[in-house]
Computed example of a mutant assay.
Amino acid sequence: MLNPRKLTALLSLIIAATLSGCSGGNGEMNHMHAESNMSMEPIKVEMSWSPLQVAAGQKVVFEALVTQDGQPVDDAKEVLFEIVSNNNSESKLEFTGESAGNGIYKAEGTMEAEGEFTVTSHVTARTQHSMPSKKLVVQP
């Protein structure tokens, strides 16, 4: 069993080692960050669906065009289409977008019910998150 003096010395040594490890004295972290050419320009998401006029029970293709600095973003970590009924906020559908190339992400789903919905695309790419929304009216 350690006496209080030895325990204090051991704890001091552990704390000193931990703090010195966090200082980044060798500059490696700063160098890695400087090499990363990550743009600070926000990602832009343009959402659409096809067909434009949707009927209940019809298959719909949801699409998000993701760009940054005018260039397509093909390395998004997540693209999710969330569809919430404007009449019943507990009624929600989610479809995961898959890359189709050139910054385009697509998901296919069926809109079973008629009514007004809010479609929100949740896009996480390049340390950023964008959530544009649009209204979708599903006809009977």
Rank of each mutant, 00 (worst) to 15 (best):
1 M>L: 11
3 N>C: 12
3 N>E: 13
5 R>V: 10
6 K>L: 11
6 K>I: 04
8 T>N: 11
9 A>G: 07
9 A>K: 06
12 S>G: 14
13 L>Q: 04
13 L>P: 02
14 I>K: 01
14 I>E: 01
16 A>T: 15
19 L>W: 03
19 L>Y: 04
21 G>W: 15
24 G>M: 10
25 G>D: 07
25 G>E: 09
28 E>P: 02
29 M>Q: 11
31 H>C: 01
33 H>L: 13
35 E>H: 12
35 E>A: 11
35 E>M: 14
36 S>Q: 09
36 S>Y: 05
36 S>D: 12
37 N>I: 00
38 M>Q: 11
39 S>A: 09
40 M>S: 11
40 M>R: 08
40 M>G: 11
41 E>S: 15
42 P>W: 03
42 P>M: 02
44 K>A: 09
48 S>K: 05
49 W>V: 08
50 S>Q: 08
54 V>R: 01
55 A>F: 15
56 A>N: 06
56 A>F: 06
58 Q>Y: 09
59 K>P: 00
59 K>T: 07
60 V>I: 09
60 V>F: 08
61 V>A: 04
62 F>G: 06
64 A>N: 03
67 T>M: 04
68 Q>R: 15
68 Q>W: 09
68 Q>M: 09
69 D>W: 14
69 D>G: 14
70 G>F: 13
72 P>N: 09
73 V>Q: 13
73 V>F: 13
73 V>R: 12
74 D>T: 06
75 D>A: 00
78 E>A: 12
79 V>R: 02
80 L>G: 00
81 F>S: 06
83 I>D: 04
84 V>R: 12
85 S>R: 10
87 N>S: 09
87 N>H: 02
88 N>W: 14
88 N>G: 13
90 E>R: 14
91 S>V: 01
93 L>W: 04
95 F>E: 10
97 G>I: 02
99 S>G: 12
100 A>C: 03
101 G>P: 06
102 N>G: 06
104 I>M: 10
107 A>P: 00
107 A>V: 00
107 A>D: 01
110 T>E: 13
112 E>M: 15
113 A>T: 11
114 E>V: 00
116 E>W: 08
116 E>A: 11
117 F>I: 02
118 T>N: 09
118 T>F: 03
120 T>F: 00
122 H>C: 01
122 H>D: 02
122 H>V: 05
123 V>F: 00
124 T>Q: 04
127 T>I: 06
128 Q>I: 10
132 P>C: 04
133 S>A: 14
135 K>L: 07
140 P>K: 14
